[in-house]
Structure formats: structure tokens, C-alpha cells
Deep mutational scan, measured.
Amino acid sequence: QIFVKTLTGKTITLEVEPSDTIENVKAKIQDKEGIPPDQQRLIFAGKQLEDGRTLSDYNIQKESTLHLVL
């Protein structure tokens, strides 16, 4: 699982696999929060994550925290 922290300070927990794409993660966030993926920007280690890449591409491991910017 990974954590996604929103600007409001809320933390969302997501069940993911390293092979999941960023697009996939955004879809999971939409399921939980109702935020359309095209409004979501995910930041990890100061980098904006691209939809077509996977979590493992960015070396995002379990218990990692991503930041969600709208």
C-alpha cells in the first residue's frame, strides 16, 4: 500500500502493486475521493509523475507517500 497526502492534509491509503501505472493510481484516487484523474497531479520526491509510467519506474515502494496537487 502507499499513502497519498492531499493539500488539505488528508491522507488516503491505496492498495497498489509496483506494476501499477500512475494512471491506474489516479483512477483509484477517483474511486475513493471522486476527483477526476485529469485534475490530479501526483508528486513524489519533488517530481511530477507521468501517467504512462509505473510506480516501480519511480522507485515508489510500499509505505511511500505521494503528494496530490489539484
Rank of each mutant, 00 (worst) to 15 (best):
residue 1 Q to M: 11
residue 1 Q to L: 14
residue 1 Q to Y: 15
residue 1 Q to T: 15
residue 1 Q to W: 15
residue 2 I to A: 02
residue 2 I to R: 01
residue 2 I to S: 01
residue 2 I to P: 00
residue 2 I to N: 01
residue 2 I to G: 01
residue 2 I to F: 04
residue 3 F to K: 06
residue 3 F to V: 05
residue 3 F to T: 07
residue 3 F to M: 05
residue 3 F to Y: 13
residue 3 F to R: 06
residue 3 F to C: 05
residue 4 V to R: 00
residue 4 V to T: 01
residue 4 V to H: 01
residue 4 V to M: 02
residue 4 V to S: 01
residue 5 K to Q: 13
residue 5 K to I: 15
residue 5 K to N: 07
residue 5 K to Y: 08
residue 6 T to I: 12
residue 6 T to K: 05
residue 6 T to N: 06
residue 6 T to G: 06
residue 7 L to P: 15
residue 7 L to K: 11
residue 7 L to Q: 14
residue 8 T to V: 08
residue 9 G to M: 04
residue 9 G to Q: 04
residue 9 G to N: 06
residue 10 K to R: 10
residue 10 K to E: 08
residue 10 K to Y: 15
residue 10 K to C: 13
residue 11 T to E: 06
residue 11 T to F: 08
residue 11 T to N: 06
residue 11 T to Q: 07
residue 11 T to C: 14
residue 11 T to I: 15
residue 11 T to P: 03
residue 12 I to L: 11
residue 12 I to G: 01
residue 13 T to F: 08
residue 13 T to D: 04
residue 13 T to N: 06
residue 14 L to Q: 00
residue 14 L to E: 00
residue 14 L to I: 15
residue 14 L to A: 02
residue 14 L to P: 00
residue 14 L to C: 04
residue 14 L to G: 00
residue 14 L to T: 01
residue 14 L to D: 00
residue 15 E to V: 14
residue 15 E to R: 10
residue 15 E to Q: 14
residue 15 E to I: 14
residue 15 E to F: 15
residue 16 V to W: 12
residue 16 V to C: 10
residue 16 V to A: 08
residue 16 V to D: 00
residue 16 V to G: 02
residue 17 E to I: 13
residue 17 E to F: 14
residue 17 E to Q: 13
residue 17 E to Y: 13
residue 18 P to K: 06
residue 19 S to F: 12
residue 20 D to L: 06
residue 20 D to H: 06
residue 20 D to Y: 07
residue 20 D to Q: 05
residue 20 D to T: 10
residue 21 T to W: 05
residue 21 T to E: 03
residue 21 T to S: 08
residue 22 I to Y: 01
residue 22 I to A: 02
residue 22 I to G: 02
residue 22 I to K: 00
residue 22 I to W: 02
residue 22 I to D: 00
residue 23 E to F: 13
residue 24 N to T: 13
residue 24 N to Q: 14
residue 24 N to R: 13
residue 24 N to V: 11
residue 24 N to Y: 11
residue 24 N to E: 12
residue 25 V to R: 00
residue 25 V to A: 02
residue 25 V to M: 05
residue 26 K to Y: 04
residue 26 K to P: 00
residue 26 K to I: 03
residue 27 A to I: 14
residue 27 A to W: 14
residue 27 A to E: 10
residue 28 K to V: 04
residue 28 K to R: 07
residue 28 K to P: 00
residue 29 I to W: 00
residue 30 Q to M: 14
residue 30 Q to C: 14
residue 31 D to R: 11
residue 31 D to K: 13
residue 31 D to E: 15
residue 31 D to N: 09
residue 31 D to T: 10
residue 31 D to V: 13
residue 32 K to Q: 13
residue 32 K to P: 02
residue 32 K to R: 09
residue 32 K to W: 06
residue 33 E to P: 01
residue 33 E to Y: 08
residue 33 E to D: 05
residue 33 E to A: 09
residue 33 E to W: 12
residue 33 E to G: 05
residue 33 E to N: 08
residue 34 G to K: 06
residue 34 G to E: 04
residue 34 G to N: 08
residue 34 G to H: 07
residue 35 I to S: 04
residue 35 I to P: 04
residue 35 I to D: 03
residue 35 I to W: 13
residue 36 P to A: 09
residue 36 P to C: 09
residue 36 P to N: 08
residue 36 P to W: 06
residue 36 P to Y: 06
residue 37 P to E: 09
residue 37 P to V: 15
residue 37 P to D: 04
residue 38 D to Q: 11
residue 38 D to P: 06
residue 38 D to V: 09
residue 39 Q to K: 11
residue 39 Q to S: 09
residue 39 Q to D: 08
residue 39 Q to T: 08
residue 39 Q to C: 11
residue 40 Q to C: 09
residue 40 Q to K: 02
residue 40 Q to H: 04
residue 40 Q to F: 15
residue 40 Q to E: 02
residue 41 R to P: 01
residue 41 R to W: 10
residue 42 L to T: 00
residue 42 L to W: 01
residue 42 L to Q: 00
residue 42 L to K: 00
residue 42 L to M: 03
residue 43 I to Y: 14
residue 43 I to N: 06
residue 43 I to C: 15
residue 43 I to R: 05
residue 43 I to S: 11
residue 43 I to G: 03
residue 43 I to E: 13
residue 45 A to H: 14
residue 45 A to E: 15
residue 46 G to N: 06
residue 47 K to Q: 15
residue 47 K to M: 12
residue 48 Q to Y: 13
residue 48 Q to A: 11
residue 48 Q to M: 12
residue 48 Q to W: 11
residue 49 L to E: 00
residue 49 L to N: 00
residue 50 E to M: 08
residue 50 E to F: 07
residue 50 E to L: 10
residue 50 E to Y: 07
residue 50 E to C: 11
residue 50 E to D: 09
residue 50 E to R: 07
residue 50 E to I: 08
residue 51 D to E: 09
residue 51 D to G: 06
residue 51 D to M: 05
residue 52 G to M: 10
residue 52 G to R: 09
residue 52 G to C: 10
residue 53 R to L: 11
residue 53 R to E: 05
residue 54 T to S: 08
residue 54 T to V: 06
residue 54 T to G: 03
residue 54 T to C: 08
residue 54 T to Y: 06
residue 55 L to S: 01
residue 55 L to P: 01
residue 55 L to Q: 01
residue 57 D to Q: 08
residue 57 D to A: 06
residue 57 D to F: 11
residue 58 Y to S: 03
residue 58 Y to L: 06
residue 58 Y to W: 02
residue 58 Y to A: 03
residue 59 N to T: 04
residue 59 N to K: 08
residue 59 N to D: 11
residue 59 N to G: 12
residue 59 N to A: 08
residue 60 I to H: 01
residue 60 I to V: 09
residue 60 I to C: 03
residue 60 I to E: 01
residue 60 I to D: 01
residue 61 Q to I: 14
residue 61 Q to A: 10
residue 61 Q to G: 15
residue 61 Q to S: 10
residue 62 K to T: 13
residue 62 K to H: 14
residue 62 K to G: 12
residue 63 E to I: 03
residue 63 E to P: 03
residue 63 E to G: 15
residue 63 E to M: 11
residue 63 E to S: 09
residue 64 S to K: 03
residue 64 S to P: 03
residue 64 S to M: 11
residue 64 S to D: 15
residue 65 T to N: 04
residue 65 T to V: 15
residue 65 T to L: 09
residue 65 T to G: 03
residue 66 L to H: 02
residue 66 L to M: 05
residue 66 L to P: 02
residue 66 L to K: 01
residue 66 L to E: 01
residue 67 H to Q: 12
residue 68 L to H: 01
residue 68 L to F: 03
residue 68 L to R: 00
residue 68 L to K: 00
residue 68 L to I: 05
residue 68 L to N: 01
residue 69 V to H: 10
residue 69 V to K: 07
residue 69 V to S: 09
residue 69 V to C: 13
residue 69 V to M: 12
residue 70 L to E: 10
